[in-house]
Simulated scan of single mutants.
Amino acid sequence: MTRLLIAAGGGGDAITAAVVHTALHGAGTPALVLTYAWERLVVDPVPGPRRATDFTGTEAAAPDLALVTPRTAPIAPAGSLIPRLAAGLEPRLGLLDPYGGTRGLARQIRAAARWCRAGRIDLVDVGGDIAARGDEPTLRSPLGDALALAACAATGLATTVYVAGPGLDNEVPLTELLPRLGPPAFALTAPHTEGVLPVFDWHPSEASALLVAAARGVRGSCGTRDAPRPVLLDDSACQVHRLTLDAALALSPLARALAGSTSLDDAEAASREVCGFSEIERERHRAARPGPPHRPHTPHPSLASRGSRDAETVLARFTAWKRDLLADGLAYVTSRRITEDLGLSAPEARSLLGTPRAAASPRRAAPLWGLA
């Protein structure tokens, strides 16, 4: 039997699903993770999720089941890091296509369960927006999670919901989220993360990086690109909460509203009704703006120039930049915050600054960057 897991959100949840799978079933246990190819505009400039026809090289393992392999590639202008994740993660990856709404997703999940010979599903969310009411002012991306939850309910298969790293996605305030989730079921530790650690040398996921860092013992305040306020890594940040399917559905008005939906348009309409917005519509607006995607942080003045890229210049800029962040009380930053604030690509950052997991690095706090 191959274990069947579903990553409730985008690529970052697929990484978290691999970590949770290791904690639950052990490294080396065969697993399939179903995930959306629904990534930020910095990765995929086309708004909304991708479907199998947006890729070449997927493997049709069964009707309604498309597997992603390292040879899979997005068709331009779409972009995706899911094929690279397929090469970097131990579980196999399958594609979730939400364009048929909850009913279409349920067909895909049933097909995957037959292929895996699995009688149950582990649904994994990092951060906790799967438990959102829909009216939280900081909520940004509940639709994928709610669709996955509603689809699991529609399959009739036994489903357990795992919320890892509550609050790390900065969507539902931790003070509101923890009472909904109840006591943690277990905590992730460093050995659970070994298989995914190299992925963060190139993958921009922030919530999963925060979770992995917390599991590896990193504690303190971390600055992210994706939210205006820092994230505090404490002992709760590496905990995993276990919910029954019924309990998770009771927490999510959006998932209940999505029951029986047959298209992504239906799902967007339900999101507008419950949450007051559609995240896909927001992506369309952002994609239509001239210039690069919106970024909430303004680079330090000494980093504004994109002139010389030599190591001495970048290190001098990095020193000035981190001095200001330390003064603001931050101990760590994500790789995405570093690359966007310094105006570097991920390969340039690795070349000029090293990697946060390099043994000789004074900033070692893998997969985050230490500022002290």
Results as ranks from 00 to 15, higher is better:
Pro83His: 14
Pro83Ser: 14
Pro83Met: 00
Leu85His: 06
Gly88Asp: 13
Leu89Trp: 05
Glu90Thr: 12
Glu90His: 01
Pro91Lys: 12
Pro91Arg: 11
Arg92Gln: 14
Arg92Tyr: 04
Arg92Val: 07
Leu95Thr: 06
Asp97Phe: 03
Tyr99Lys: 04
Tyr99Thr: 14
Gly100Lys: 09
Gly101Cys: 09
Gly101Pro: 09
Thr102Pro: 00
Arg103Asp: 15
Arg103Lys: 15
Gly104Val: 14
Leu105Thr: 10
Leu105Trp: 13
Ala106His: 02
Ala106Ile: 13
Arg107Ile: 04
Arg107Ser: 15
Arg107Pro: 03
Gln108Arg: 11
Arg110Trp: 05
Arg110Pro: 03
Ala111Gly: 12
Ala111Phe: 06
Trp115Thr: 10
Trp115Cys: 12
Trp115Phe: 15
Arg117Gly: 13
Arg117Ser: 15
Ala118Asp: 00
Ala118Tyr: 03
Gly119Lys: 03
Gly119Met: 05
Arg120Gly: 14
Arg120Ala: 15
Ile121Thr: 03
Asp122Met: 03
Leu123His: 05
Leu123Asp: 02
Val124Pro: 06
Val124Gln: 06
Asp125Trp: 07
Val126Lys: 09
Val126Pro: 06
Asp129Glu: 13
Asp129Ser: 15
Ile130Gly: 11
Ile130Ala: 08
Ala131Arg: 08
Arg133Trp: 10
Arg133Thr: 15
Arg133Ser: 14
Gly134Cys: 12
Glu136Trp: 09
Glu136His: 06
Glu136Thr: 13
Glu136Val: 15
Pro137Leu: 00
Leu139His: 12
Ser141Cys: 06
Ser141Arg: 02
Pro142Lys: 00
Leu143Met: 11
Leu143His: 00
Gly144Gln: 07
Gly144Leu: 04
Gly144Pro: 09
Asp145Ser: 15
Leu149Lys: 10
Leu149Ser: 10
Leu149Thr: 02
Leu149Ala: 10
Leu149Gly: 10
Leu149Val: 07
Ala150Pro: 04
Ala150Ser: 10
Ala150Tyr: 03
Ala151Ile: 07
Ala151Lys: 07
Cys152Asn: 01
Ala153Met: 04
Ala153Trp: 06
Ala153Ser: 06
Ala154His: 03
Ala154Trp: 02
Ala154Phe: 02
Ala154Met: 09
Thr155Asn: 09
Gly156Leu: 05
Gly156Cys: 00
Leu157Val: 11
Ala158Arg: 02
Ala158Met: 08
Ala158Leu: 00
Ala158Gly: 10
Ala158Phe: 03
Thr159Ser: 00
Thr159Gln: 05
Thr160Trp: 08
Val161Pro: 08
Val161Arg: 08
Tyr162Ser: 03
Tyr162Asp: 02
Val163Ala: 01
Val163Lys: 05
Ala164Tyr: 04
Gly165Gln: 01
Gly165Val: 02
Pro166Thr: 01
Pro166Trp: 02
